[in-house]
């Protein structure tokens, strides 16, 4: 039995963030399909933006779940999200254009089963557990699908398992040089898994503020997107990878500057090379 120890006061309600995050990330993943329609790869960066939207939503879900006094469970919640999401995401890529929708539905089922086990079998008895784990699994699946679409240009299994190696100027298809064959999915897993838990883990405390945490979530998302853009270079055309990198750097710089500004606003004081201030009664 756990008691709700902190509550979210003011700010944007969780349901609004959830609906906005879900719609934005699904739509943005679908926008990468423009690659197939136009025959280019320049729209791959929408996959990265989808991950940012899902991560912002995810950081707030973790806040929502962890307000029931799960202090040390914050980083593990991120791993949980991606561990359950990766199953749904990989299975859904078989379904072609329907993949993002299938991933959302499947992830919700996986999350519901895990939530049931956590609440009723392991007896955690946390009221928002099932809903939160459903959300987390959906987020995990969408973020991984976003990285897959961003790094390989498409969210279909055939694109994720075939890359090309150029040997002496000849371009040969290769499983080894693909998103799955090169295990870039392992890096994508960790990029998302740390980015989703870091905002709440870093901002927890009595003076937590919602806007600061959400800006940090976007910052972590764009930072991961920078790394993903560089890793996409051998898989998609260099031009498309540079577009992704450009978008990611701009987004990261803006959110990082904004986050520092908000930290300055919320901090007790902002000192440079000063001793520890005297506290009354010591």
């Amino acid at each position: 039995m756990t008691v709700k120890v902190e509550k979210i006061e003011g700010g944007i309600p969780h349901n609004t963030i959830m609906v906005a995050g879900l719609i934005a990330s699904v739509v943005l993943v679908y926008l990468t399909y423009a690659n197939v329609l136009t025959g280019t790869q320049y729209f791959a960066f929408f996959g990265g933006l989808a991950t940012v939207a899902a991560l912002v939503w995810g950081s707030h879900t973790i806040k929502h779940l962890c307000s029931y006094g799960i202090g040390t469970g914050v980083p593990s919640a991120g791993m949980m999200a991606f561990g359950s999401g990766v199953i749904a995401m990989l299975f859904a890529t078989k379904y072609g254009i329907a993949a993002p929708i299938v991933a959302v539905i499947l992830a919700a089922v996986v999350g519901a089963i895990l939530g049931y086990v956590a609440n009723n079998v392991l007896n955690m008895k946390i009221p928002v557990m099932i809903v939160s784990l459903v959300e987390m699994a959906v987020i995990g699946a969408l973020v991984l699908m976003g990285y897959a679409a961003m790094m390989s240009g498409s969210f279909e299994l055939s694109a994720l398992t075939t890359g090309s190696v150029s040997i002496l100027g000849l371009s040969l298809p290769s499983y080894q040089a693909s998103f799955l064959g090169g295990a870039l999915i392992a890096t994508a897993f960790m990029l998302g898994g740390i980015a989703i838990q870091h905002p709440f883990n870093a901002c927890l405390g009595p003076s937590w503020t919602q806007d600061r945490m959400l800006y940090l979530a976007a910052e972590c998302g764009f930072l991961s997107m920078i790394a993903a853009a560089i890793m996409s270079m051998p898989l998609i055309s260099m031009g498309a990878a540079l577009v992704s990198l450009f978008v990611a750097v701009i987004g990261w710089y803006y959110t990082y500057a904004k986050y520092i500004e908000l930290s300055k606003r919320d901090a007790f004081s902002w000192l440079d090379s000063k001793p520890i201030p005297e506290v009354e009664g010591q």
């Binding site: 003076s207 986050y259 007790f268």
Partner: peptide
């Protein structure tokens, strides 16, 4: 980048107890 955001976030959230952010 993660290190800076973690320090700023944790310290700013301790404002209630008077912990300042030391930029140095």
């Amino acid at each position: 980048v993660y290190a800076t955001t973690a320090y700023l976030g944790r310290t700013a959230s301790l404002a209630k107890f008077g912990q300042p952010v030391f930029v140095d």
